[in-house]
Design a protein around this nucleic acid. Structure first.
Lengths: 105, 105
DNA sequence: TGACTATATGAGTAATCACTCATATAGCGT
DNA sequence: ACGCTATATGAGTGATTACTCATATAGTCA
């Protein structure tokens, strides 16, 4: 089953499209973290966090490696941050203004 | 109900995270189109397309205006295309691991 | 070895999503 | 007014999602 280019993009964006996963990625802006740090900082259930991390790894958004009992994570590509920043800009614009600032496209 | 910044971003990304909505947006790269053109070009059911467009409008990704019977659409902000392009780059990179590379239309 | 810690996963559930069919609404031309 | 066209939407369905609890796995250290 061949995936289309659009399906690839949609998969990446779906993996990013969850508030907690966004918080995780933004936490990882400061560098490598393990589950045992992310969980408490974001107040996420252990199994819930584990599944979120799995989604991020599967889509190649974060990379993981074991360090003893821990699993460390970092964001694989700085373009991930760029996507989130752009989404923030668009969301911000949409939230603040009505329909009339849209003439720039 | 106060939305967090992460929820705003997640909403934008969710609205983008569907293959057909991505195809719609990329169709709109060439300018304004109406439903009656998009539907046949992408072979989408009328009601299905209508709902996809509603999602895109609600998130401020496209703007719409009526022209007689038609409803025209255009992408509200160039940054939308930037998000899709970045997602394509990341997806492309990730795809190298297993499958052979896909061509750009 | 056993106790402890960090992470992963099976199973169940409630909510949301994408889609379709049928119908409703709205604008055009006669 | 009428028929025709373009779009929107109610209702139903099957699939997917996020979450939780309980349990399994794996690594560390006494």
């Amino acid at each position: 089953m061949q995936k289309t280019q659009e399906e690839f993009k949609a998969n990446i964006l779906s993996a990013l499209a969850h508030p907690n996963r966004i918080r995780i990625i933004e936490l990882l802006k400061n560098g490598t973290k393990c589950n045992c740090e992310i969980g408490p900082e974001l107040e996420l259930e252990q199994s819930n966090l584990s599944r979120h991390m799995k989604i991020l790894v599967q889509e190649g958004i974060v990379v993981s490696w074991k360090d003893g009992l821990r699993v460390n994570y970092k964001v694989s590509d700085k373009r991930i941050f760029a996507i989130l920043d752009l989404a923030g800009n668009v969301a911000h614009m949409e939230a603040k203004v009505g329909v009339e600032v849209l003439e720039e496209a």
